[in-house]
Amino acid sequence: MSHPLHAALSGWISAFNRHDPEAMAELFTSDALFQGYGPEPTRGRDAVRAYYAAVAADRSAEGKVLHTFALGEDVAGGFAEVTIRNPEGPQAHVHMSLVLVRQGPAWRIRQYHVSPVRSGA
């Protein structure tokens, strides 16, 4: 059986590439902690929905899982490397950290954090 982070990342990329803020919000728990590129962490699906509604519709993403972990049967997570493509400018390379919780049959994102990948430190 595949680790749930693979499905979570796939769902995130799919919702991002469709520019579907509602589908993106549904990937998260109702009380999710969210730290995107904004200056402050936010909480909840409404904040996630608003964040992704503000992303330009011409952006696309691709990514791969780097590391996974599990804490019992209902908590899992890990790290992914994601590239956000901008057709008119530079690409953004980020590391994405996710903590997932099982809610019924579904895995949802409980904690989300991205940080830029810096080249040549």
Score class of each variant (00 low, 15 high):
residue 95 H to V: 11
residue 47 A to G: 09
residue 101 V to Y: 01
residue 68 T to D: 05
residue 4 P to R: 01
residue 67 H to G: 08
residue 2 S to T: 12
residue 18 R to C: 01
residue 41 P to Y: 02
residue 7 A to K: 13
residue 82 V to W: 03
residue 36 G to C: 07
residue 109 I to C: 11
residue 32 A to V: 06
residue 7 A to F: 07
residue 85 R to M: 00
residue 75 V to D: 03
residue 97 S to W: 02
residue 29 T to Y: 06
residue 103 Q to Y: 03
residue 59 R to A: 00
residue 41 P to C: 06
residue 77 G to I: 00
residue 81 E to T: 01
residue 39 P to K: 11
residue 71 L to N: 13
residue 65 V to D: 05
residue 6 H to W: 04
residue 9 L to S: 10
residue 88 E to T: 02
residue 30 S to Q: 13
residue 118 R to D: 11
residue 47 A to S: 14
residue 54 A to R: 13
residue 51 Y to N: 12
residue 73 E to N: 13
residue 80 A to W: 03
residue 25 A to E: 05
residue 1 M to P: 13
residue 76 A to R: 08
residue 67 H to Q: 14
residue 35 Q to D: 03
residue 76 A to C: 06
residue 47 A to W: 03
residue 87 P to M: 02
residue 92 A to Y: 07
residue 48 V to K: 02
residue 105 P to A: 12
residue 61 A to W: 02
residue 116 P to F: 07
residue 10 S to E: 14
residue 110 R to F: 06
residue 58 D to C: 04
residue 79 F to L: 14
residue 79 F to G: 14
residue 72 G to Q: 09
residue 105 P to N: 12
residue 25 A to K: 10
residue 62 E to W: 08
residue 50 A to V: 07
residue 22 E to R: 15
residue 36 G to A: 07
residue 101 V to K: 12
residue 10 S to F: 03
residue 27 L to N: 09
residue 23 A to Q: 14
residue 53 A to K: 06
residue 117 V to P: 14
residue 89 G to M: 01
residue 121 A to K: 12
residue 23 A to L: 06
residue 76 A to E: 04
residue 11 G to A: 14
residue 35 Q to R: 12
residue 85 R to Y: 00
residue 77 G to W: 01
residue 45 R to K: 15
residue 67 H to K: 14
residue 55 V to N: 08
residue 90 P to Q: 11
residue 38 G to T: 12
residue 3 H to G: 08
residue 25 A to I: 03
residue 7 A to I: 01
residue 115 S to L: 09
residue 8 A to G: 05
residue 53 A to S: 15
residue 66 L to C: 10
residue 43 R to Q: 15
